[in-house]
Every structure is written in C-alpha cells, then in structure tokens.
Design a protein around this nucleic acid. Structure first.
Lengths: 146, 146
DNA sequence: GTATTTGCAAATACTTTGCGGTGTG
DNA sequence: CACACCGCAAAGTATTTGCAAATAC
C-alpha cells in the first residue's frame, strides 16, 4: 500500500471516518495528476476506475480530504474552483486571461518582519501568495509581440 | 462630482462604455462600505437608492468595474465571492473558521529577489498574499486544539 | 435616432442534500 | 449488525443571459 494511502487511512481512522475505496481513489487521482483539477475533471478520472461514482461522493470526499489537510481548494477570482493535493508548499501564478494555473516551485519566503500583523489578535497558520498576470501562451496571442 | 466618479466616467468613456447612474452607484456603495461585500449585500445597498435595480445589473456593473480596474473579486477557499473597490493595495487575513476577512493595512512587500519566477515566461502584473488562520473571535469560542 | 443598458425572469453552472440501499468496523 | 457511506436524483445557491423597454449619446 502506498505511503500516501497509509497516511490517509491513519487520518481517517483518527477522526472516526471510515476507510473506503472511493476516498482512496479520489486522493490517488488528485495526487497522481499533478495538476489543479476542477471537480468535474476529477469526477471523470475517478469514474474510469469507479464507473458508478457520483458527484456527491467527489465533493464529499474532497471536503473530508480538506478537513484532513490532504487537499486544498483554490479559488482565483472569476476562475473555477480547483482542487489540489497538498504535498509540497508552493505558490501559484494565475493567468488573468485564460485562468491557467502555474506552480511556482521555488520557495517564496516572507521575512519574519513582513509577517507581523500588528494590531490584529489573530493566529496566522499559513499564507498563500498568488501572482497574477498573463501567461506565455496568452502573450503569444497578442497584437504583434515577439 | 466626486473624484472617484470622475475617474469612473473617464475610464468608461475611454472604453466605449456608457455612463449610467447604476454603474456610478454600484461603485459608490462598493467604495463607501469599506468592507468586502457579497453580491447580495451590494445589491441591498444599491437597492436603497435604486429600488428597481436587479442582480443582473449588479453583476454586469461589477464585471465592468473589474475590467476598468476599479473593483476586485476575492475568493477565499470555501468562502463566498466578495467584491471590494481597489483603492489601496493591501493584503487580507481570512479566518478559516468563520470566513471573516480582515484587511492588513501595512504593506507586506516581497523583496525583488523573491519575486523571480525563473523558468516561466510570464508577466506578473500584481500579487496577492492571503494569510489564513483563526480570528480573535473564533479563538475565544474554542473547544479543543491539539 | 440608434446602439447600449436596464429590469425582469428564466436559465445555467456548480455544489449540496435527502433517502434508501450497501459495506465497513 | 449498527452506523457511516454510497449512488442517485432532486434541491439549493450564486451567477449569467435573453428580451422588450428605457436611456445615453
């Protein structure tokens, strides 16, 4: 059994959830495709292995995976909701024209001094940086540009 | 006429859009309430001044305001879509429990070196940093934390 | 005058939920 | 063998769209 599936089962068990093939496959497909999947794309992938799976199950599994900290929902402006498995900590570039999402793999670290949020008694657990702009492909389809 | 309305009219004209009371009021209400409004909240505010306004108009005006760079849509995970007027550049803290959004007014600057996104031929136009965590109110109503 | 925009309502898109049957622990 | 979970379908929620009337230019 994969290390990842192991982790999932442990976390499910610890929270009183049951171990099911559906949840395992949803996580597998989400992790395997290193992309940012819309719910319907994930549904199609899972359906190849579980032909009778339903959207309800996809959404319910995603919700639990998020609760377990093994998946994350991404919403960027007007673009669709996307989901990704949370393996590495990385940031995203989002094309404001075509909604393409590109992972920024090298760490973008905020200096401690910049993380001070004075005056607000909040507990910051994580931060997420989104870079917005125009992707290479959309630049190409511009009005005469090299 | 307000400076802000002036700016709106100029931008509308430049893009061949027409100047209408609806668009002016949508922008006014969005700017006046220094909050992050859901579409339905904005609708209620505008409705006080234009009793027959419709959701269609709200959404269409918001889309144009965004196109003109005078409003911005915010989506944070599972929380609703919110809209805000783009006056100052600031970042956001989002409570993962109650979806409260707190503005971080002091600048959080990324050092130039940290903005290099090597290997991707993209044009970064802006970035947005979101801090996630638990807000003061939700910390108070805690039950158990590990 | 005419092309854009509005109000209204219906349609759409995405997600959630109720329920009866199924499978895990 | 009890209770969580699934598949299915229907409902819910947020947003978009078609169209005739109103309005900006």
């Amino acid at each position: 059994m994969g290390k990842r599936a192991d982790e999932l089962n442990q976390r499910l068990k610890r929270r009183g959830f049951r171990i099911t093939r559906q949840r395992e496959i949803v996580l597998q497909e989400l992790s395997r495709s290193n992309q940012h999947l819309r719910a319907d794309e994930l549904y199609e992938l899972v359906k190849k292995r579980l032909p009778h799976v339903s959207f309800g199950t996809i959404y319910r599994s995603l919700k639990i995976l998020q609760e377990l900290g093994m998946a994350r929902e991404l919403n960027f402006g007007r673009c669709f909701s996307r989901f990704e498995a949370t393996e590495s900590d990385h940031q995203h570039f989002i094309c404001t024209r075509c909604c393409a999402i590109i992972d920024i793999d090298q760490p973008v670290v905020l200096h401690p001094i910049e993380m001070k949020i004075a005056g607000h008694e909040v507990k910051v657990e994580r931060y997420q940086i989104e870079f917005y702009g125009i992707c290479q492909e959309c630049q190409g389809s511009n009005i005469s540009e090299q």
